[in-house]
Measured scan of single mutants.
Amino acid sequence: EQLARLKREFNENRYLTERRRQQLSSELGLNEAQIKIWFQNERA
C-alpha cells in the first residue's frame, strides 16, 4: 500500500514540497528522509 501510494504521488508530481512530504510521512508511517530518498531514486 505504501509503495502504491508513493507511485501515485510520483505520477502526479515528480517533486514534493516540504509540506507534502510531511503529510505523506504522517499518512504512511514513514519518516521524511525515507520519502525524500524514494523520490530521488525514482527520478534517477
Rank of each mutant, 00 (worst) to 15 (best):
K7T: 08
A4W: 05
L24M: 03
Q23S: 06
Q2W: 13
L6Y: 01
E27F: 05
L24Y: 00
L6C: 13
N31S: 15
F10H: 01
R21K: 12
L30N: 05
R43C: 11
E42M: 13
L30K: 02
E9I: 05
N13I: 05
R5Y: 08
N41V: 07
F39E: 04
E12R: 12
E42N: 04
F10K: 02
L30Y: 03
N11L: 14
E27R: 03
K7H: 09
I37P: 00
T17K: 05
I37M: 11
E1V: 07
R8N: 09
Y15R: 05
Q23P: 00
Q23I: 09
R8A: 14
F10V: 02
N31F: 06
S26W: 13
Q23N: 08
Q34R: 04
S25H: 04
R20H: 08
E1S: 10
Q40Y: 06
R20V: 09
S25F: 05
R5I: 13
N13G: 05
L30S: 02
R19K: 14
L30R: 00
Q22Y: 06
N13V: 00
E27T: 05
Q23V: 12
Q2L: 13
L16C: 00
R20G: 05
R5P: 01
E1G: 06
E18H: 13
K7Y: 07
I37C: 10
N11A: 15
S26H: 13
L3E: 12
S25L: 14
E18M: 07
N31M: 09
R20T: 08
N11D: 13
E12Q: 13
L24H: 00
L28F: 03
R20W: 06
Q2F: 07
L30M: 14
W38Y: 05
Q23T: 10
R5A: 12
Y15C: 10
S26V: 15
F39D: 01
N11R: 11
R21N: 08
Q40R: 11
A33R: 09
Q22W: 06
A44V: 09
K36Y: 13
K36R: 12
E32R: 04
G29S: 05
F10Y: 10
L30A: 00
L16Q: 03
L30F: 04
K36W: 13
L3G: 02
N41E: 09
L3P: 00
E18P: 14
Q23F: 06
Q34I: 15
L28K: 01
A4M: 09
N11Y: 12
E27A: 07
F39G: 01
Q2N: 08
L6F: 02
R5D: 03
Q22P: 00
E12K: 15
R8E: 12
K36S: 15
I37N: 09
R43W: 14
G29C: 00
G29L: 03
L30I: 12
T17E: 04
R5H: 09
A4I: 08
L24Q: 01
R19G: 12
R21Y: 11
R20L: 10
N13S: 06
E27I: 08
N41I: 09
A44D: 12
Y15A: 04
R20Y: 10
G29R: 04
L28T: 12
R14T: 08
E32Q: 08
Y15V: 12
Q34A: 14
K36V: 15
E1N: 06
R21G: 12
S25D: 02
Q2D: 07
S25V: 08
F39K: 00
R21S: 15
K36I: 15
S26M: 15
Q40D: 13
E27D: 08
L30G: 02
E18L: 11
E32M: 04
E32S: 05
R21L: 15
E42F: 11
I37Q: 13
S26A: 14
Y15P: 03
A44F: 08
E9Y: 06
Q34W: 15
Q40H: 10
A33E: 15
L6Q: 02
N41R: 10
A44Q: 09
G29V: 01
E42L: 08
L16S: 02
W38E: 01
N13K: 07
Q22R: 13
L28C: 05
R8Q: 12
E42I: 06
L24R: 00
S26E: 13
R14K: 13
S26F: 13
Q34N: 05
R8D: 10
I35M: 03
Q23A: 11
R21D: 03
Q22T: 07
I37T: 11
K7N: 04
W38N: 00
K7F: 06
E18R: 14
K7I: 09
E12V: 08
N13Q: 03
R20Q: 12
R19D: 12
A33D: 15
W38A: 07
K7G: 06
E9N: 01
T17H: 05
